[in-house]
Design a protein around this nucleic acid. Sequence first.
DNA 1: GTCTATAGTCAGATAGAC
DNA 2: GTCTATCTGACTATAGAC
Lengths: 202, 202
Amino acid sequence: MTTTRRRSAGSPAGVARKEVIIRAAAKVFAQNGFSVATVRDVADEADMLSGSLYYYFDSKESIVEQVLVEYFDTQIRAYEQALDGAQDAADRLERLVAEALRSTVTHREHLLILQNDWQYVGPMAGIVERQSQIEKLWLRTIQEGIDEGALRSDIDARMMYRTILGAVQTVIRWFDPRGRVTIDEVIAVQTAILLDGVRSPD
Amino acid sequence: MTTTRRRSAGSPAGVARKEVIIRAAAKVFAQNGFSVATVRDVADEADMLSGSLYYYFDSKESIVEQVLVEYFDTQIRAYEQALDGAQDAADRLERLVAEALRSTVTHREHLLILQNDWQYVGPMAGIVERQSQIEKLWLRTIQEGIDEGALRSDIDARMMYRTILGAVQTVIRWFDPRGRVTIDEVIAVQTAILLDGVRSPD
DNA sequence: GTCTATAGTCAGATAGAC
DNA sequence: GTCTATCTGACTATAGAC
């Protein structure tokens, strides 16, 4: 019985091992920042030595890219699911806001990396592409809301998108998952302020 | 005639030189990020050699702290001036939002450092203190608005503050001072959305 | 696959000449 | 005050044993 066989019978052991590294990297990069965290820190967290990481990844950069690409692919599905079964455009926008806020808890580490190290990870090919996919999904929803008359027509859809997302994304900088305020309370507050702010005056 | 005398007759030459370094550091740290930028980069930008910086500063950390403390002291005065002569609490809040947005143009570099490298600069003594001073100023204004009945009373002042500031602060990530959209247009859009969102329903 | 060992580079900071 | 020169340590990445 080899070490390989013991780790996982059905699937190749390398795949599972790669996942362990990716999870370790998410934690370490989120905690210390991408440029300050070292590949040794990641290796420690994954219970291996730094040299061994290079069997799975070409570079430190390729590790963080994999970490974030995996997150984006999950998040895009979450957004699409949130839109399914919504009544009207205003309802769809509210669901996007709620989902974005929930992700600050469920994917805290990935969002911290994205925000803190945007300068380094933003230009990576796999990220540019997925980021724009998410932006399109929001813009489509907002534009439909404007066209339907549910959202105010005096403000550009992209400006609305940026204002809303700015408010939502920075929640991660102060929200404490173990604090007294729950994420559902934050969702209630922010949807109240932001949706009231962009709704069409009747 | 010594080099010292030539630089400035009345005031000590060292003071002016220190300002040159601080300006160079603001530019370099904003451009590359604090952890990636090197003291050699700062020295290059200030037209000196890296060793010479240590005549004026104890460490790389102390340079960035000075850079930001200087900014905060300017910004606190700007906020107080913005509040002067305002009619009511809603007007005062609108002026704070406008001033915060204007600062993303006038103090772009400092705000980029604060946001990108908050993990490293946030805990510094001189910054914690001034940051909380600014927060108090916002919270006081918002609470007065709630008490006067101008702002909605179903939402906590601190939650309002955080939602508004989140939207405002992230403008720096997409706003291009040389682009087609002016900062006054951004002010118009954001005050419209955010003030409408927090105003009391009549 | 994971290890040991190390090459190669560059960082922050200091000492002492001028 | 600013320079030259350098120390010490830490980093990413690689080579080759096992």
